[in-house]
Structure formats: C-alpha cells, structure tokens
C-alpha cells in the first residue's frame, strides 16, 4: 500500500502536462502506480485522486474497468495465454492446461513463491503466430509445451531479466517532451489565420 514516490510524482506531473485536462492522465498514472508496486495500491489511488483533483471513487471507477490493472499483488511474471479463436484453433487450451499443470496453479492464480501468475486472455494481436502468450506484455510466439517449460526455467534463472522486466513495467522508453498546453487552441487558430 503506497503512495507514489517523489520521483514518480515528477513523472506524473510531466504526463499531466501533456493533456488539456488533468483527468486524461488518469490511465497513464495508474500504470505508473502499478509499475511501482506491481499492482495498483489503494493509497496510490488516493494519491492519484489528489494529483488529478478527483474523488478516489472516480479513480477506482475508471481503474477497475481495465483488465490490466490489478488491485492485489500478483506474480512477478504474469503469463497471459491467449485462448481466442485463432489461438484456440491451433492448441491454445492445451497450452493453457499444460501451463496450469506445470506451475501447479489455475488460470487467475499465483504461485506460492510469488513468481508466476497465469491468466487466459483475449486476443493479443499475434494471431498469425498462434498459439501465443505474453509474459509481462512481452510476446512469445508459436509456443509449444516444451518452449513454455524452457521459458519458465529461463525466467527462474534470471536469464530473461533484460527482456522481461517485472510486472507493472510497460514501456522502458518514455515520451520525453512535455508540451505546454494552454494556448493550443488559439495557436491553431493563429496557424489558420497565418495562411
């Protein structure tokens, strides 16, 4: 349960500055909280509400709409197995069941060591590479049960650390520019007038 660190508050302010209205920064800020704790903590939502002049209920209302946000700790590695139609046609359920057996948890669960969670998810836009999965939103294509086991071993041994950051971290590269907003409308008008 934690509020955003000072460092992240700075990032948050930068993100807020990119939008004409503060509330637009809500989803990016929730990601920031999830990056910090691996899930969106209650205090973080209160903090975000403060930063955006919202009621915490509004923050939670939006946050809970989106599947990527977790409100309780999950594994360090979240494995999302796609079972949608293109993957189902070429063995996604076998892969999911294999994964469940291998890790000893059911879809939606987390291993006791806190390392892995699995979920069966909707289409992840890798349909031509089915069956496909994501680990912390990094893709694995045409995954066979053997490839799955090897991946787990690699993750356990820290071999994929560079490629797969811990749960919550999305892009490791961020947009840098902070754009000053207040005059955009009139500036656009000026551009039109200038021509």
């Amino acid at each position: 349960m934690s509020r955003l660190t000072d460092e992240r508050v700075k990032t948050a302010q930068e993100i807020i500055g990119r939008f004409p209205r503060k509330k637009s920064a809500l989803i990016p800020l929730l990601h920031l909280a999830q990056e910090q704790d691996g899930y969106v903590a209650q205090d973080a939502m209160v903090h975000i509400a403060e930063l955006l002049d919202l009621a915490p209920a509004e923050v939670y209302g939006t946050a809970s709409f989106y599947e990527m946000f977790k409100f309780h700790p999950v594994g360090k590695y979240c494995i999302n197995v796609c079972t949608n139609i293109s993957c189902q046609l070429v063995g996604a359920w076998n892969l999911l069941h294999h994964a469940e057996e291998h890790l000893g948890i059911k879809s939606g669960g987390t291993t006791d060591d806190g390392l892995f969670s699995i979920e069966d998810v909707e289409c992840i836009a890798a349909c031509t590479e089915a069956p496909a999965l994501q680990v912390n939103y990094r893709y694995r294509y045409k995954v066979t049960p053997e490839a799955f086991d090897a991946m787990i071993t690699d993750l356990q041994n820290g071999k994929l650390t560079g490629e797969v950051p811990p749960h919550g971290t999305l892009a490791t590269v961020r947009q840098e520019t902070t754009t000053a907003w207040s005059n955009r409308g009139s500036e656009a008008q000026a551009q039109v007038d200038a021509r």
Partner: peptide, 14 residues
C-alpha cells in the same frame, strides 16, 4: 509556420 504536438498515451486492457 506549422506546429503540432503528438501525445503518446495508452490504454489498459479493454
């Protein structure tokens, strides 16, 4: 004399 800002933002699963 043309200026434009492009803001990158992203969703969260929906």
């Amino acid at each position: 004399n043309f200026s434009v800002d492009v803001t990158l933002t992203w969703g969260a699963g929906a």
